[in-house]
Amino acid sequence: MDAAIEFPVETHSFQSWRCYLLEAKYELLRQVRQPAFVLPTLLFPTAFYLLFGVMLSRSAAAAEYMLAGYGVFGIMGAALFGFGAGIANDRERGLLRLKRALPAPAGSWLLAKMAAAMVFAAVISLLLAVLAYTLGGVALAPGQWLALFAVNVIGIVPFCALGLYIGSLVGGNAAVAVVNLLFLPMAFLSGLWMPLSILPDIFSRLAPVWPAYHLGQIAMKVVGHDAGGSVWLHLAVLTVVTVVFFVLARRRLAAAA
C-alpha cells in the first residue's frame, strides 16, 4: 500500500465536540418543526393523564399510578416515533448514507436523535409532574419526583433501540404504521393506562413479555404501586432488549448502506 498522505496538524487535533452539539440542536429543531410529531407526542400523554389520572380518578393513589404509567407511555411515544420513525425516514431519504459519507463522527447522529428524544421525554415528564402536582393532588417526596424524572429520561434508551430496529427494517411511512401497531397495544397490555388487575388474569401473566411493562414497573416502584417484581429483573430485561435491538439494527443499517 502507498504511504499515507500527510495532513495538516489541525486535521488530527480538530475537536469535533461542537458538531455533536450542533447535530443535537438541529435534530431537536427538525422535530420541533414537525407539528405532526410534536403535538401528539406532548398532548397524548398529558391529555390522557388529565382525563384518566386527574378528572376520572378518585384517589391520590390512582393519580400516582397513572402519573408513572402515562409518563412511561409518553416517553415511549417520543422514543418510538421521534427516534424510530425518524430514523426510518432519514434512511429512506438517503440521509444516513450521506452522514456516513461525511466526516461526521460515527454515531453522532444517533446520539443527537437520542438527545432530542431525551429532551422530549424530559418535557413530557415535567408536564405530567406539573399536572399531577397541581391538579392531581399527587404529593411525592423530592427524591421520588427526581427518580421518576430519571426513569423517564433514561428509560427512553431501550425504546430508542427498539425504534432503531424498526427504523432499520422498514421505510418512513411503514415505520409509523408499525410503531402505531406496537405502541398503543403495548402500552395497554403493559398496564400503563390502567392496572392490569382489572383485566382477566392472562393479561397480568403475559405482561412481562412487553419491554414497556418492565419500565412501567420501575416507574411504579418509585411511587409504590408496582406489582412486586425485582427491579433487577426489570433492569435486566430492559438491558437485554436494548442490546439485542441495537445489535440487530446496527447489522441491518451497515448492510443497507
Partner: peptide, 27 residues
Amino acid sequence: TLGIAVALQGNAGDSAAGANEPTVAQA
C-alpha cells in the same frame, strides 16, 4: 429473557389479578 421474565413475574401477575379487588381504578 422475556420468557424468564414472564415466568418470574407470574407470581406477581397472579396476585395482581387475584380474587381481591383492584387497587386504584375503581373507587
